[in-house]
């Protein structure tokens, strides 16, 4: 059981990295990766929301949507859960850890429309459907995918810091250069895809 969970974790972080191999959450990845400090903040906030929403949506699907035959409403139900969680996290941080709330401020609402969160919830129910034993796998999967997102965004913030001093042709300035650099990082990540267990 433990080995299986560790494998799911490792696969989610490296082999099937959300940014570099599955393209979930590329918008916030390109938007917030300009500075390493904010990248860490955004990555941590996403990790928190994704892990909790992964657990909550799995339970909702298994114990509400499946028994009532409402599985076709999964997207709608999950996005509401995610929006509510983000709102709750916002209120919690505002009350309990105001310093972190101020630091993350504008990034919190953005998490609702981060497709990594909804993507992890939908993959969680399709890949780990069934008994409660799969519940642990689904939660570990969500957590690992979020760590992969955090890893990618922090790593790439370092790369973009170096790109600031580069002098590309005018047409390549900004996003095109960032995309091509992300492509080079993705080549490095594709090395992991050779690892199969």
């Amino acid at each position: 059981m433990i080995t299986k969970l560790l494998l799911i974790l490792f696969t989610a972080i490296f082999i099937e990295n959300y940014i570099f191999s599955k393209f979930y959450g590329v918008c916030p990845f390109l938007g917030v990766s300009k500075d390493p400090a904010t990248a860490v903040g955004m990555g941590l906030a996403v990790t928190g929301v994704m892990t909790v929403s992964g657990a909550a949506t799995w339970l909702l699907y298994r114990f509400v949507l499946v028994p009532f035959g409402l599985t076709y409403l999964d997207t709608l139900a999950f996005i509401l859960v995610i929006a509510a969680l983000v709102q709750a996290l916002e209120l919690f941080l505002k009350k309990m850890i105001p310093s972190l709330y101020r630091a993350l401020g504008i990034y919190l609402p953005l998490i609702t429309t981060n497709c990594a969160v909804l993507g992890a919830a939908l993959t969680g129910i399709s890949d780990f459907e069934g008994t409660l034993e799969h519940f642990a796998s689904a939660v570990v999967y969500s957590f690992g995918s979020a760590l992969g997102f955090l890893f990618a965004i922090v790593l790439f913030a370092g790369v973009r810091k170096r790109l600031e001093s580069a002098l590309p042709p005018k047409a390549f300035q900004g996003i095109p250069l960032a995309l091509i650099s992300a492509g080079l990082v993705a080549i490095a990540f594709s090395g992991f895809s050779g690892m199969r267990f």
Binding site: F20, K170, L179, A182, S190
Partner: peptide, 21 residues
């Protein structure tokens, strides 16, 4: 492959930028 997606999109956006300029 995924890496090719990033590189292609980067070059296509750069080409569109050049045309717009």
């Amino acid at each position: 492959l995924p890496a090719g997606a990033f590189v292609t999109l980067g070059f296509v956006i750069a080409a569109v930028n050049a045309l717009r300029r």
